[in-house]
Design a protein around this nucleic acid. Structure first.
Lengths: 368, 368
DNA sequence: CCAATTGCCGAAACCGGTTTCGGAAATGAG
DNA sequence: CTCATTTCCGAAACCGGTTTCGGCAATTGG
């Protein structure tokens, strides 16, 4: 009679599960002793602790995280809010990123709660919900902005988080990041070493913090190579192939066009291929290009795109490990790591066949 | 003194949260009455139920799912185990798929628990863990196989699930699926209508259930167009661009090559572009192609790939809705839906410029 | 040798919900 | 008007854990 509207066959405790009560009974101990033994309280003798551990092992006892959560407030879940349509470059990485997080999380018995959002404001709202409903104990923040509303929220609410990327104000922030600036610097040095004198730079989205750093790396490279900085050769806001094509055309129609271009984003670099194809230029010979990300598509163009590749899976894994440490109480200052991107030299960068002047002349005749 | 090893500042009930006890006190009712009122029990008067609803609304009461779960066994979370490295085609869809699921789930106050696996066996193990730890109340199964170990597990454990795709044995299965067979049939009819007489088919992975259906659709198209079936024109196992290039070359070097090719998978179809480029053939003129999936990359080749596009986001959304209904007790037989893929005619399929014989002859001269 | 600690564990309260059970009041039948 | 049903709600048990509190035994200090 007294029955919920939506009734399934559920509701009763499942038979197989061994609870802490069953375990304590089997061991002849009280629930509280078992609980404290397993959670590392100091007022349990080493002998008992060991006995409890072994008993739990053999009986296959696994505490239900949501039963623990009711008292502790922690559900042993990491949170990730993915911003959709943010920019296309994010997508190919997602599966690998998730794989890395998932592997690190499950190694510690944690899980991953994923939500999506279609704007930064929406992301903040979504995270707020997840925190409110205690669906995650902390968050991984991909694509950190220079001034990030998500960081502000989490700081205010005192929710643990780890950024994939660094930020302007490091106060209370933990992070893992790739050294994009070093990659850009090395790209310039590599091209300069091949003999290029006019090396352009096409940056990604300006709001992202990485853009600032990569531009800085490009400049550092020029300086170390003893090359002058030409503002006409620095462009930005290129996130996808169409953007890349546009920026390439703008660069090549300059009075003194570059003979090599460094891109901050692979997908934009792929646009250079299309621009060159339209102009009858050979990539890697007439125009050289080096980029950053290591997207799979880059291997399928001709010549394959030379790029600093990021191990997204490893990044996800490390981020999850850092976040778990953070949730367990480690100070954010001790949880800051960076890694280098590996240069995959695949042939899109070679010695300049034409000088800037010759290139300019050839383009003038080609387009008329 | 008595303190856990890893102590953060957490542990106490957060101040802002309004519990069911607080709500019931404010209403002058008992906890049990409030609980039953909100959960639709019939032994609560309509007047009281309304009063409770309003009170909950104004006080901002939101039950903690994990507190409910301790008794009900349900955590209001959907589960998704993504198979990594399964095949590349899956990746670009992932973000949209997640977005769809996420949106439908959060509309009902549910969340999404994601894990990854690198094989089917691993996926089964992972799902078992999630069920065991009650991290998900049910699962969405992407990429259904004809004989799926995941289905066997979930059936045995009586865990609700919904498939993205159909399966050989529909017993107890709910699903949402795209009518790939109709798309393949229509592709053949479209090409036949343009004048093509020799139309090849390159299928995807044979283990997937969709492959069986799409092949069937191709055959149906031939039959309806009154064209003979030539086994030499039917190939399979092409999942990525390299596969597609290989299969295209195999087809074009036949004594009687096809003038048009239908692909079951966009990424494989992109391989045809590379094969044609190598052979000096113009896609859409010398060789026509129609494919299936609607991946973004298809829009960036020349001419853009004509493809039956799948609205992955909508699929994810519908799947989540179906799964929630299933978890709430709806019979699986009532939760089976299909949708058509929309044909995006972008120019890679045109009337045959060369006959099969002429094409063969031209290829013979080109390669020597 | 006695008092004060210390080490170790059990009893019980608690977390925030759900569900069972029983009883008072209202309703209907005779 | 009485008695049997309903209708509707409260008290209390319960879910599976964690944490507080207190007590007994063994140790230490003087």
């Amino acid at each position: 009679m007294t029955k919920a509207i939506h009734d399934h066959e559920e509701g009763r405790a499942q038979p197989g599960r061994v609870t802490i009560t069953a375990l304590s009974a089997a061991l002849g101990l009280s629930k509280s002793t078992v609980s404290r033994a397993l959670n590392g309280y100091p007022d349990i003798s080493e002998r008992t602790r060991l006995r409890v551990r072994r008993g739990a092992e053999t009986m296959g006892y696994r505490p239900l995280s949501h039963a623990q959560a009711i008292r502790t407030g922690r559900v042993r879940a990491l949170g990730l809010v993915v911003q959709i349509g943010d920019h296309d470059a994010q997508r190919p990485f997602l599966a690998d990123f998730l794989a890395g997080i998932s592997v690190a999380a499950s190694a510690e018995g944690w899980t991953l709660t994923v939500a999506t959002a279609d704007s930064e404001a929406d992301a903040v709202r979504t995270m707020e919900q997840l925190v409110e409903d205690r669906k995650a104990d902390g968050f991984i923040l991909p694509r950190t902005l220079s001034h990030d509303a998500r960081v502000a929220l989490l700081r205010a609410r005192d929710v643990p988080f780890v950024m994939f990327g660094r930020t302007a104000d490091p106060e209370g922030c933990a992070w893992f990041d790739m050294l994009g600036e070093e990659a850009m610097r090395d790209a310039v040095l590599h091209l300069a070493g091949l003999g290029h004198r006019r090396i352009a730079f096409v940056n990604g989205g300006t709001a992202y913090n990485y853009s600032r750093l990569r531009l800085q790396g490009y400049r550092e490279g020029l300086a170390q190579a003893g090359l002058p900085e030409d503002l006409a050769l620095i462009r930005g806001g290129a996130l996808n192939t169409a953007d890349g094509t546009r920026e390439t055309l703008a660069l090549l129609t300059l009075a003194e066009p570059p003979t090599a271009v460094v891109f901050a984003v692979d997908h934009a670099a792929l646009g250079l291929y299309r621009a060159c194809a339209g102009l009858g230029l050979a990539v890697g010979r007439d125009v050289s290009v080096i980029s950053y990300d290591g997207v799979p598509d880059g291997a399928h163009v001709e010549p394959p795109l030379s790029s600093f590749t990021v191990d997204t899976r490893a990044a996800g894994q490390r981020l999850a490990e850092l976040l778990i440490a953070r949730i367990r109480g480690a100070a954010p200052e001790t949880l800051r790591e960076t890694a280098r991107a590996a240069f995959a030299d695949r042939g899109s960068a070679g010695p300049p066949r034409l000088s800037s002047e010759a290139l300019s002349k050839r383009l003038a005749t080609a387009t008329t």
